[in-house]
Design a protein around this nucleic acid. Sequence first.
RNA 1: GGCGCUAUCGUCUAAUGGUUAGGACAAGUGGUUUUCAUCCACUAAAUCGGGGUUCGAUUCCCCGUAGCGCUACCA
Length: 501
Amino acid sequence: MNTIRTRFAPSPTGFVHIGSLRTALFAFLFARKNQGHIILRVEDTDQNRKVEGAVENLLKVMKTVGVEFDEGFFLNDAGLAEQKGEFGPYLQSQRLDLYHEHIAKLVEEKKAYYCFCSEQRLEDLRKEQTALKKPPMYDGHCRRLSQDEIDKQMAEFKAAGKNPVVRFAIPTSGQTIIEDLIYGKIVYENQLLDDQVLLKSDGFPTYHLAVVIDDHFMQISHVIRGEEWIPSTPKHILLYQAFGWEAPKFAHLPLTLNPDKSKLSKRQGDVAVEDFLAKGYLPEALINFVAFLGWNPKTEQEIFSLEELINQFDLNKINKSAPIFDVGKLDWMNSVYIKTKSDVELVELLKPYWEKAGVEINKFSNEFLQAVTALEKERLKKLSEIGERTGYYFAAPAVDPKLLVWKKSTSEDAKSKLNELAEFFENLPEEKFSRENLETEVKNFIAAKNYDNGSTLWPMRVALTGLEKSPGPFDAAAVLFIGYGKQEIVKRLKSAAASII
RNA sequence: GGCGCUAUCGUCUAAUGGUUAGGACAAGUGGUUUUCAUCCACUAAAUCGGGGUUCGAUUCCCCGUAGCGCUACCA
C-alpha cells in the first residue's frame, strides 16, 4: 500500500491567507495528480488564537475556489463543519489523550523530560545569552535533574495546581538530514537544536508534537507546507525517530512575498482570499494566479483551468526562490477570465455588485442587463468595478456642459449638433435602433450634412453617458434603446443641448 | 548574534557548459478610432559582486554581498 496521502492543516485563526490557499492548492494538486488523498486537519493547539467560525469560513472559501478535501472536515447542509474519515478526530483539541499517552512513553524512555523552569528564569536566560551574543537556547537545566529532584518539584507543582512542561531531549551530537522534495538535502547539527517544548503546561501539545503524531496516525505520506517550517523539520524527524516511526516525505514551499519583499502580510494590502473574492476576482483567476506563484509548467501557456493544473502539476517544477505577489498580473488574469464568460453567466455574477452599488436590478430586463454587460466585459478588471462604470444606464447622468464640446470644436457647434441629432433620432423608425443600423444611419446623417465624426459623435457619446471615457455612442445608444426606447436617447440629447448656454 | 534558504528584465518566469538569454504582466511608441477599452505592430528592460574549474560559464564549485525565514509553553 503506497497510497499518497497529504494534508492541509491550518490553524483556525480567522480569514484565509492567500499563502494558505497556495499551500492548500499545491497539496490538493499533488494529491489529485497522483490519485492520492488530501486530508483537512485543524490545528487548534493554541487555544488563545482560536476564532469562532474560522473552520466554516475556511471550508466555504475552499469550496468556492474548488479545492476539495477527501477526509477530515466538511461543510454539511446546514453550513456547519463536520468531520468524516476513519483517522479522526481531525481536530487536535479532541486528540489530547493520544498526545498524553505518547508523551508519557517518551518521558519514560528518557527521550523527553519535565521542565519546571519558570518563565522568569527562561527570560533571564535568554537575556543573558543574547547579551553574550550566544544563540538563545534552553540550557538543559531540568534535563539533568535527578529522580529525587524531579519527584520533589513535581509534588510542589501539583500542590500549587500547576503542570510542568515536557521538553524533547534532543541528541547532543550527530546530524539530522532533511531530504526535501523541493530544496534537496539540508543538514542540521543536532547540538544546535533547542530542546523543544512538546507539551505545554495547559496540557496542550505544541505544534511540533501534534504534527508528528497526527501525520503518523493519519498515515500522511507527504507533508507539503511553507518554507518557514524548514528549521523545525529536523526536530520533527528526530521525534519520528524517538517514536520509532518512519517519517513522511517533506516538500517545503517557498514563501510568498509583499512587493517590498517582506513576508506577505496584512498591512500591505489584502491577503485574505475572502477579500479578493468579494472584490470580484473570479475563483478561476485566483487559482490560476496563485498556482503560478512559484510554480510553472515550463511552457508558454499561462491560462490554466483547475483540471489542466492537476494534469500538469509536478513538485519538481516548483521554484526554490520566493515569488512576490503582484496584483497587476492578477488583474490581467482576472480580465482574461471575465472575457471568457458568456454574457448570461456574467450578468448573474455581476448582479450582487450592482445591488451593492444601489441599482435595483429587478426593475430592468435581463436583455438590457446583458447588453450592458456585453459592453463592459472587455473593460472590466474586477466585478466590483461594474457599479461605477455603468451608472448612466440606470439613471440619466449629470452632464458637464464643458465636456460636451469636442477638443476641435466649439460649444455652439456642440449645441446645434445635439439638437439636430435629437431631431434625427426622433424621426428614425424604431427598427433602425439596432447597434449596426444605428451606426450606418448616423454615419449617413453625418455624411449627408458634411459634418465630421469627431464633432458629432463626441457630444453624442458624452450626452448619453456623461463620461469622458466610455463605450462608443452607437453602443450606448443601442443599449439605452433596449432599456428605455428611443425617447430616452432623444431626452438625453435634448437636455445636454439645453445645458450648453 | 546563531542556524538555514534564496539570487535571470520593475514583476511572474523560460533556457543553456557555447543562444541575438525566450515569453507574459506592467511601461513606452505607433496603427485602428469620437473618448476609453479591445485588437495589431514595435521599443526599452535582466543573468548580484569576486575568485576558481573549463577552450568557454549566466549555468558547476568556493567566498562575499543582499534579501528572506527560523531562533516562544504561536503556528
